[in-house]
Write a protein that binds this DNA or RNA. Structure first.
Lengths: 256, 256
DNA sequence: GAACGCAATTGGTCTGACCAATTGAAAGAA
DNA sequence: TTCTTTCAATTGGTCAGACCAATTGCGTTC
């Protein structure tokens, strides 16, 4: 019965954490650094081995914390290079919503309802806040969408690109992030059926209508156009999925 | 006896975040089990040592994957007991949004704008879809809020409880989850200042107005009342924060 | 000067051990 | 019997050190 004794006890309770879990200490410390402005988007954080020593935790625990930060989209790891604070525009990962959808059986219909609710509001804000640059990007996506009418995959990219541009133009990064989170999940579902779409022209015409309403600073018209557009898109998707009946019906749950 | 068999094979790759290969396999396998219905909310997954052996990865890598699933709210770990698939109502964790807020310096104003956009839509849907049971819960929270007018902390709980009830009544769990995610962040900020509030009575009166509009199935009135309510709440919070100027100003970033 | 190659840096994984919370069955008391 | 106490097995949490793999930068070579 030889026992390899390793004495250790870490007095790292410096900055107001109430829990005793090492991995959460790591998250708290990094969050503190971010909130204090010592870590900014794009910054590289110290190497794991060094940071682990500084925080007084093992590298495994440190990596647990970093993994959490990565999971919620705050951190990007590059093998051989380092760990970096996420840069670029604020973004909520769609994976959590996707997983929730799988767990609770969200229907495509409910997802579209959520998307419409958010995007209608976003369109209204865009009409109020869009800058000339925002309008330019929207117009560009619009053009690209028209140009891709005979290429469903490419079309879909610019379709969502337009909606993303509207989100940015709203001037509210929170709503924009939420919008993209929902769109991301629907985009994945859409990719499987877009080949059978036949109303692409009609859809992009409505994009144009939305764009014009925003450019005219007419919030009500922008909301109305977006609402109409997404309702029609939902019907189109439903029709496409219907034409594929028999291959996969994993998403219909009405359990309360 | 519930040995969950898991075949090792090609990744299905969904979210291209910076997770390692082994870790990603773990996440994908668990997601598969969920999507196939072999794991349901509340279920316990096999012990880590056993599951690691089944998947052919080390326990460390397995734990990386489980940590990711925990981060996005799919998994709950109970020390000494096991890992469980999240149960209860669908819920998006507010931590990612909170971290985004810290990273990009979201102002309370923008957060309120997002909250108002979502909740106005939610209120409209609630007016259309609320059941008698939903109305009962809303009424109950309303009563509790009135009863707690002299107890700010308790008041705040039922304040948000009412909004949550409206979210549930909307019949759309996606929107409801998003609404709570935003509210969670604002709730944390609100806790620090609620002691100085003096318009509580007025606020809960507006809750009553919203409730009546929903009960009357008047979606437009519900939206209008919610919009008005949240605009006033925002002004009240701004006033409270102003009265505290000088102690802590970590949240105002106007990226020049 | 450009292309190649090697070595240092750094994240990713593995192994095995020990710590800590939970659980349930065995032992003991009422 | 029935309840309480005790303790050992189970299981998640952490640690340590090693090695693998991708990246990067510098020095060599042509």
């Amino acid at each position: 019965m030889t026992s390899i004794k390793i004495a250790r006890f870490q007095p790292v309770n410096s900055s107001g954490n109430g829990n005793g879990l090492m991995t959460e200490q790591v998250v708290d410390q990094v969050r503190l650094l971010i909130q204090q402005g010592k870590l900014r988007p794009g910054d590289r954080i110290p190497p794991e081995r060094e940071l682990a020593r500084q925080l007084g935790v093992s590298r495994a625990s440190l990596r647990s914390g970093l993994r959490y930060l990565g999971a919620i989209g705050v951190l990007n790891s590059r093998h051989g290079s380092g760990n970096f604070i996420a840069d670029g525009p604020p973004s909520l990962d769609g994976a959590p919503l996707n997983m929730l959808a799988a767990l609770h059986g969200f229907t495509t219909r409910k997802m579209f309802e959520a998307r419409r609710s958010v995007e209608v509001a976003v369109a209204g804000l865009a009409a109020e806040h869009a800058t000339e640059e925002h309008l330019r990007i929207m117009a560009e996506e619009l053009t690209e969408t028209y140009a891709a009418l005979d290429n469903p995959q490419e079309y879909l990219i610019h379709d969502f690109g337009f909606h993303r541009a509207v989100g940015v133009a709203s001037g509210n990064p929170i709503l924009s992030s939420i919008m993209e989170m929902i769109s991301e999940v629907l985009y994945q579902r859409r990719c499987k059926t877009v080949g059978r779409s036949r109303d692409l022209k009609e859809s992009v015409d409505m994009h144009r209508k939305i764009y014009r309403a925003i450019r005219a600073r007419n919030a009500d018209a922008a909301r109305a156009a977006m609402s109409e557009h997404l309702m029609m898109a939902e019907q189109a998707l439903a029709a496409e999925e219907l034409s594929e009946s028999g291959s996969d019906e994993s998403n219909q749950s009405a359990a309360t």
